[in-house]
Design a protein around this nucleic acid. Structure first.
Length: 600
RNA sequence: GGAGCCGUAGUUCAGUUUGGUUAGAACGCCUGACUGUCACUCAGGAGGUCGCGAGUUCGAGUCUCGUCGGUUCCGCCA
């Protein structure tokens, strides 16, 4: 098709171009018909420019009158200064006095308006994603994503990392998430799996001597979705040889420093804070604490203080080897500077919340003037205990202490959830901060009560801490559970954005780990034989990390869901509303693959 | 697999608590008027499988059950 090609974009013209004859191509965003004089906002990726159509030019005017929103047009004319300027937009001092107008394509009436603040439901936005992506907000997210992409590539290139593409069709492995499977036509009855991550390949690249590997790659996990989890997602995958944990931290921190500097012009402080997994659970009840939370204390164990109370719930907890722990909420004020009273309604609501987490209820203690407390459980406590408790928290008038009791892990995680909930309910998250935090020394194994066996907490190639190597020969559950790994997560604002470990490169240690998780030699050989073989031929000490690219971009864009930074995301039921996938396939295709469907 | 919330005009929502006349509003769309708008304004108009299916009832957008879709969370998952 013949059309007049643009000489400028809709974002670049300003008063300095006055008098220039130009052509714009773009989408009709808004038509303002003043009865005679006609104004058209023309939009492209770069911005918005106002076209002026004068009724004196009859043929152009008539064409313009047939336009609708989202028509694609070519408009030529002279850049002129506006009679009344709009200083809210960059091009607001000028307009185009159009003397040539071509309709390049019509548009149906759009299902929703293309505007910055979208009003359409997410369902509709996903169905018409090409319309949604025309919105400035989405365009900004996608472009910012691309900028981060370049920063990552450049950063690692500067450090002499080698980008290597790894296969998308690979062998299914039993560990970790459920695999997406791809049937093989040539080998009927056999399947490839899509990679959950290129884990084994990147380790083999280390054995191959690549030394420093990076890849921004797609990963696939067939598990249920969340706001921050898609079945296919993007990872910054990194692996290095002859390094220790601190080297991984240095390289990673440098990356984030550069991203934040270039995208946000913010100098983030490195090195990042570090917390062991055990401390994170002890202090925050989660392995991904949000350090932006203000006015809520860390978790304090108060078993020693209240264990002799008359309160039966506490006594039960102590009897069952459990604990009693608490958090303190500072006196808080609303945006009108008025103190927020912790009312019965609020405590009832929190009680309801902890009941869902499997507790009978929550103990609370409101601190009044002169250390007087109002609390349903105060009557079970001696004055000394109360004083001691207030001292433990440095509690002052207006503060509230929330107490839970029971099994250690259950209490800690519940208090961790409670911190998040209270912070969200009362707006206690400081949104202006970026809080990076390394969580280190994760347990190597997790005991599975159902199967009565151990499972890998991270992945099976993670090396134990030196001082715990001896427990690999143990058969004592406590000893095995106490093994900590050289394994780390990077947490940003309460989101897990990265995870990695130093790997096992010595076959003897690897075999012991396999043994503990109940993998026989034969199974290990059939599942990971290629990797174990490779280890026999001089595997260097190595380790790495992988970052969740979508989550990082989501934080940078200030959005809650990674769907906002993915061009074509899936819904929570893992379908694509735009192209209606997954979908049934033809009988012929199944036959070729030797697949028969079970009747429902 | 489980729990919560949502589903009404092209779109966003009100109406559902307490079943009852013709299901409303805004934006968008169509027609007309208007030569400096930029959320243009003004006048008029069209537009509804109340997600779908059963049930209760004289009567269901409204109550009950089921089902489908979206979303948040738990389980699951780095």
């Amino acid at each position: 098709m013949n059309f007049t090609k643009r000489t400028k974009t809709c974002g670049e013209l300003n008063i300095t171009g006055k008098g220039e004859y130009i052509t714009l191509n773009g989408w009709v965003t808004k038509i303002r018909d003043l009865g005679g004089l006609l104004f058209i906002d023309l939009r492209d990726r770069y911005g918005l420019t106002q076209l002026k159509i004068n009724p004196e030019n009859k043929s152009i005017y008539e064409t313009a009158m047939t336009l609708g929103n989202e028509y694609v047009i070519s408009a030529s004319g002279t850049v002129i200064e506006r009679e009344s300027k709009n200083m809210n937009i960059p091009t607001g001092e000028i307009e185009i006095d159009v003397d040539k107008l071509e309709i390049l394509n019509k548009s149906d009436v759009p299902p929703f308006n293309i505007e910055e603040e979208v009003k359409a439901s997410e369902e509709l936005r996903l169905q018409y994603r090409y319309m949604d992506l025309r919105r400035k907000t989405m365009l900004k997210n996608i472009i910012l994503r691309n900028e981060v992409y370049h920063i990552v590539h450049n950063y690692f290139k500067d450090l002499e990392f080698v980008e290597v593409e790894t296969p998308v069709l690979m062998k299914s492995t039993p560990e970790g998430a459920r695999d997406f499977l791809v049937p093989s036509r040539i080998h009927k009855g056999k399947f490839y799996a899509l990679p959950q991550s290129p884990q084994t390949y990147k380790q083999i690249l280390m054995i191959a001597g690549l030394d420093r590997y990076v890849q921004i790659c797609k990963c696939f996990r067939d598990e249920d979705l969340r706001a921050d989890r898609q079945p296919e997602f993007t990872q910054i995958d990194v692996e290095m040889s002859f390094i220790k944990q601190d080297d991984v931290f240095d390289i990673s921190e440098g990356l984030f420093k550069r991203i934040w500097k270039e995208i946000k012009n913010i100098d983030i402080i490195t090195p990042f804070r570090k917390l062991t997994y055990d401390d994170a659970i002890l202090l925050y009840g989660t392995d991904k604490p949000d350090l932006r939370i203000e006015k809520i204390s860390e978790i304090h164990l108060i078993t020693e203080i209240v264990k002799d109370s008359e309160f039966k719930v506490f006594q039960d907890a102590v009897k069952k080897n459990g604990i009693i722990a608490a958090i303190k909420l500072d006196r808080i004020i609303d945006n009108k500077n008025k103190k927020i009273e912790i009312t019965r309604k609020i405590t009832d609501n929190l009680t309801e919340y902890v009941k869902q987490l499997g507790f009978g209820g929550i103990g609370y203690m409101k601190i009044g003037v002169n250390g007087e407390v109002s609390s349903p459980i105060a009557k079970y406590l001696s004055q000394e205990n109360i004083t001691e408790l207030l001292g433990e928290f440095n509690a002052e008038e207006g503060d509230t202490i929330f107490i839970l009791s029971g099994e250690y892990m259950k209490v800690q995680t519940a208090l961790g959830n409670l911190r998040n909930k209270i912070a969200a309910d009362f707006n206690l998250i400081n949104e202006s901060r970026y809080e990076f935090l390394w969580i280190t020394d994760f347990p190597l194994f997790k005991y599975n009560e159902e199967t009565g066996g151990f499972e890998g907490e991270h992945h099976v190639f993670t090396i134990p801490r030196n001082e715990h190597l001896k427990y690999l020969d143990s058969s004592n559950r406590n000893e095995i559970e106490s093994i900590r790994a050289i394994c780390y997560d990077l947490v940003l604002n309460g989101n897990e954005i990265g995870s990695g470990s130093i790997r096992i490169h010595i076959p003897e240690i690897q075999n012991k780990v396999f043994k503990i998780i109940g993998l026989t030699d034969e199974e290990a050989k059939s599942k990971f034989g290629f990797l174990l073989n490779a280890f026999k031929y001089g595997a260097p000490p190595h380790g790495g990390v992988a970052f969740g690219f979508d989550r990082i971009v989501a934080v940078l864009c200030g959005v809650k869901s990674i769907r906002e930074v993915i061009a074509f995301p899936k819904t929570v039921s893992a379908s694509s509303l735009m192209d209606d996938s997954p979908d049934i396939v033809e009988e012929k295709q199944l036959k070729e693959l030797g697949i028969k469907l079970e009747k429902k």
